[in-house]
Amino acid sequence: MGGSSSSSMHSWMHRGNTLITFFGTVAAVLCLATTLTDLRHVYTMPDPQASVSLAEVKRLAPMTGSKEQATLTFSMDADLRSVFSWNTKQLFLFLQAEYSTPDSTVNQVVLWDTIIQQKEKARIRLKNHKTKYSLIHPSKGLKGAPMNLTLVWHVMPRVGFMYTQSRTFPGGRLPDKYMQ
């Protein structure tokens, strides 16, 4: 090869290549540093506060297809403001029922969820609140089942690793009889 025009084109291309590589490296290092600050935040943040209780079981009834459905209300008082760091995009906060039945030991059903994008909105109080999704079990076994309520927040960053934290509260036993 050779010729002044082609070599100048090559030097232009190599400059571009170097620039893009440098930009990429700097961006990668910055992303890594950002996610490391989050790691530090997880270990140093004040403990988030949360309490959840079952308010009332409104209904427990059989459904078609030998399923069962329970309708509940709950109360919640949570302060998750300390979870937010500069790199937090949002919290995906949800409440789930965890129970066991004779033929299935582990059952987790999400009852309610919300997305929190601002730190100031991470202070949540709900009283006798309806669940967003009803508790449907795919077979029989809800009657008398022991249940826990777990509040989980999935912390989703702008860049880097995601993590979850949770608090579990006793929800008592579901009623022994169907109630409409």
Binding site: V106, V109, V110, H137
Partner: peptide, 16 residues
């Protein structure tokens, strides 16, 4: 997508 329900059957290695 996000997992919203899990049911694990007792004794067998089966999960919904």
């Amino acid at each position: 997508h996000r997992v919203i329900k899990v049911h694990e059957k007792t004794g067998v290695n089966e999960v919904k």
